[in-house]
Design a protein around this nucleic acid. Structure first.
Length: 428
RNA sequence: GGAGAGGUGGCCGAGUGGACGAAGGCACUCGACUGGAAAUCGAGUGAGGGGCUUAAAGGCUCCUCCGUGGGUUCGAAUCCCACCCUCUCCGCCA
């Protein structure tokens, strides 16, 4: 959500931002229209209220002086009260419309965001690691996974439906190892506070994180009106809703492991095989609350914290600066980290790190105070995967596959999986 | 799920129809006292929004906010209804 005053004062900035994202800028004009109407109504109802308050005081004074209150005054007030009620109903209607428009305008892309409308125009920032060379044709992870019985997506489909995961044996152990490895790295070495949040959220929380109202189709719901979280970003963005934080606690850094649930209505035939695109997947998520002055620096650090996971696992990757058209709704800037998948022969996103500036903070009314006397300002919020577990597992399987069909376990992960060096281990 | 109690400012807490954005206390800021501090005394201290004004900082003024949404009333923190949340007890359960 944006500061309505800013839109009012500089509509052109917002229109060109929408154009940069490849969206229709006419919503800004619509906003200006409703905004003007809203202010007009506020003035009218305010004038009525002022009159009502004044007369009320007079009545009160008469009562206290034990004098009669003239019938005409009461009658006049009755009328005024009715007028006010009608006017307020109209005002609320406009207010709702106003809010609806405001909630559906995406964040402004930062100046460092490359122009472009599709992911092909994302800008590669850096690469890490040597692409592995295999003396044989490397297999995609789903073939290896089937062979080694690491996961069983057919059975998952029978239990739930297509695109649900089921890990077994060493596959399940690998998932658990990756979760613990990532949580330990971020809590012990990067100083994030660990959170284990609810996996269901209410509507207000979804509005704060900006998953609602625009992306309702992506969310699973329950009959009680809850939403299954599509990412831990959602609960983490609501940790301090309606709070004013003291400046000295910033930056506040949180990490949470959660399963994530995505309906993803629009993803037709894309990546239907393997672990890449599922309705349910595991993710370790990083989240920061920062001051406006430091958020872009903190974004760089957050990306590095996420990259460190791949470095320790020895999986080659590249970092891309995502172009305006491919930016998330709440993001003003986003880096994707794409791991190398030798079996599939391409780079695939395993992390997405965004600076949402004050966009979510406004929605959730999350502020901070520089000094005890200073007036509150909105914090900046940042989020990033650190990392997506399923995809990291898939990348690991593809990068560490060996000619005998087994998988070598990277050193860093061994303490988390009974010290085994290969999966399956030689002795079974 | 059932019964009961409750939700008021940064925190605690009073307030049962008109003088209440709200007593009192704590916390915080400034000042006095002190060599310095504690204690004490004095002054101040909520948020959001609209209008006017200013180059700006700011100033003036009005409106809203006592869990949320409705209702009664000339007037609601206060009365009525619904919902949400917290606590206690009971039930159920990993």
């Amino acid at each position: 959500m944006h500061d309505p005053r800013l839109i009012r004062e500089q509509p052109q900035v917002f229109k060109s931002a929408l154009e940069k994202r490849g969206m229709d800028p006419s919503i800004i004009d619509e906003f200006l229209l409703v905004d003007a109407k809203r202010r007009e109504l506020i003035q009218e109802t305010q004038a009525l209220r002022e009159k009502q308050n004044r007369t009320s005081d007079e009545i009160s004074a008469l009562k206290r002086a034990k004098k009669e209150v003239p019938k005409e005054i009461i009658e006049e007030m009755r009328q005024l009260s009715a007028d006010l009620k009608n006017k307020l109903a109209l005002q609320r209607e406009i207010e709702d419309k106003w809010k609806e428009i405001l909630l559906s305008i995406p964040n402004l892309p930062h100046e460092s965001v490359p122009a472009g409308l599709t992911e092909d125009e994302n800008q590669e920032v850096r690469r890490w690691g040597e692409l592995p060379v295999f003396p044989f044709q490397p297999k995609p992870h789903w073939e290896i996974g089937n062979q080694l019985k690491l996961f069983d997506l057919e059975t998952a489909a029978e239990i739930a439906g297509s695109r649900f995961p089921l890990f077994q044996g060493w596959g399940a152990k690998l998932v658990r190892a990756l979760i613990n490895f990532m949580l330990d790295l971020h809590t012990k070495e990067h100083n994030y506070i660990e959170i284990l949040p609810p996996l269901l959220a209410n509507e207000t929380s979804c509005l704060t994180s900006a998953h609602l109202p625009k992306f309702a189709d992506d969310l699973f719901t329950t009959k009680e009106g809850f939403y299954l979280i599509p990412t831990a970003e959602l609960p983490l963005a609501n940790l301090h809703r309606d709070e004013i934080l003291p400046a000295e606690v910033l930056p506040l850094k949180y990490v949470a492991y959660t399963p994530c649930f995505r309906e993803e209505a629009g993803s037709w035939g894309k990546e239907t095989r393997g672990l890449i695109r599922q309705h349910q997947f595991d993710k370790v998520e990083l989240f920061k609350y920062t001051t406006p002055e430091t958020s872009y620096d903190e974004l760089e650090k957050l990306v590095q914290d996420a990259e460190e996971v791949l470095k320790r696992l020895g999986i080659p990757y590249r970092v891309v600066n995502v172009c305006a058209g491919d930016l998330g709704f709440s993001a003003s800037k986003k880096y994707d980290i794409e791991a190398w998948f030798p079996g599939m022969g391409k780079f695939i996103e395993v992390s997405s790190c965004s600076n949402c500036t004050d966009f979510q903070a406004r929605r959730g009314n999350i502020r901070f105070r520089e000094h005890p006397e200073a007036s509150p300002r909105f914090v900046h919020t940042l989020n990033g995967s650190g990392l997506a577990i399923g995809r990291t597992l898939a990348a690991l399987i593809e990068n560490y596959q060996e000619e005998d069909g087994r998988i070598r376990v990277p050193e860093a992960l061994r303490p988390y999986i009974n010290g085994v060096a290969h999966i399956p281990p030689k002795d079974g």
